[in-house]
Amino acid sequence: MAAPREEAAPRRPFGKRLLTDPARLFQHNAWDHVEWSEEQEASARSKVEENSSQLLPQDKQEEYEVNARRYWDDFYQIHENGFFKDRHWLFTEFPELAPQGNTRQRKDSVLEFNSKEESSNEGLSSCENGHCSLETKAEDQLNLMKSTPESCREELAPQKCNELKGTDGDYPGSSASYRILEVGCGAGNTVFPILQTNNDPGLFVYCCDFSATAVDLVQNNAEYDSSRCFAFIHDLCNEQSPFPMPDESLDVVILIFVLSAIHPEKMQRVVTRLSRLLKAGGMILLRDYGRYDLAQLRFKKGQCLSDNFYVRGDGTRVYFFTQDELNDLFTTAGLEKMQNLVDRRLQVNRGKQMTMYRVWIQCKYCKPAAPQPQGNRETV
């Protein structure tokens, strides 16, 4: 009589793979919420002190600030959409992006994307030029098509923004019941999974990027649907650069590995500006680099601009946050904390028997409802 067939262990959802037995280290491609020893923390701190002991001259720092757009354009021209892969973990970490009120569909979508994540995680040893995150490779770009007006492929000038909004308050997505903006959309590796997964007819997704090349990649993708999405070039640090939607019109703003690319002195103004776009109850969702991430430890002397702020070999820049820093940015902008956690992940390359420690911070901050005005009380 044949032995009963052993049932396969259930797949652990992304974010809940906990390494409890060191002997099982290479059984998965990644482990979540890994505890660091005091020795590991001290070693990381020492490496950061070493690689930040020599700062770039001020004139070089100014050059990287002035030419930031060109460096990101060059990055996307070189890599197009081949450097990043679609972020299929989105709906596990941020269920706010999945179809509203459709729990079954949300669950099915998460399981489907987790399956893809599991099968595609093997090549996580890449950490080129300090560009280390969940991204490694994207799927092949689909057939190209143009579906966005030419005026939207340039950074929106005030008069063009007014034309888009219309005289009667009409603007792209104005009839939608649920509006999402992704800032720093890159090649669309967040936007397209949202559009593919969330078929809510009331959904409208805006996406913008500093780089015209990146926005072109989004607009030229066969998955781009101008009836559900609006891609535009935008400089977050330029307060005169308008958004195509009015204040208090968005339900969600997404910042994924984006805020870290901005000069630290400009971050507060950026967060405050984005918070104005949120409706009461709207949320900013952030995932970004945490202090002592692998990417920070790999920098060499001469690449540091200021404390925890570096320039990569390709001219793009990156900052590494603490939870308190992000909490200060969001609460100063008038938002309330819903989530602020550190995810210390251990990525594993089973083929090469390599381990890589990643540190990311994930946040959710909500715009509180405006206080109701109190009526005048009658005096007796």
Rank of each mutant, 00 (worst) to 15 (best):
P193H: 10
L134D: 02
Y310T: 03
F257M: 09
N189Y: 10
T332V: 06
A30I: 10
F113L: 15
L278V: 09
Y310G: 07
W31Y: 07
R276M: 10
V359C: 15
F257Y: 14
N129A: 06
A261P: 01
P57V: 08
E118P: 00
D59I: 02
L164P: 08
L55N: 03
L277Q: 13
P373S: 10
A98W: 05
L111T: 09
G186K: 00
F94L: 01
E118W: 05
E6L: 00
R12M: 04
R344F: 01
D74F: 02
D314T: 00
F14M: 06
W360R: 09
I262A: 12
L346P: 05
D200T: 05
P158W: 10
V270I: 11
L346Q: 11
D140Q: 09
Y224R: 07
R291F: 10
D209V: 00
E41W: 09
C152A: 15
V270Y: 07
S211E: 01
F330S: 04
K160R: 11
N327V: 01
R70Q: 15
L164E: 14
F26P: 05
D328E: 10
L286G: 05
A176T: 05
L203A: 08
E112F: 12
I284R: 05
L18C: 01
D32I: 03
K300L: 14
L341K: 11
N67S: 01
D168F: 08
P201W: 07
A157Q: 14
R228F: 07
N129I: 00
R377Q: 14
R377V: 14
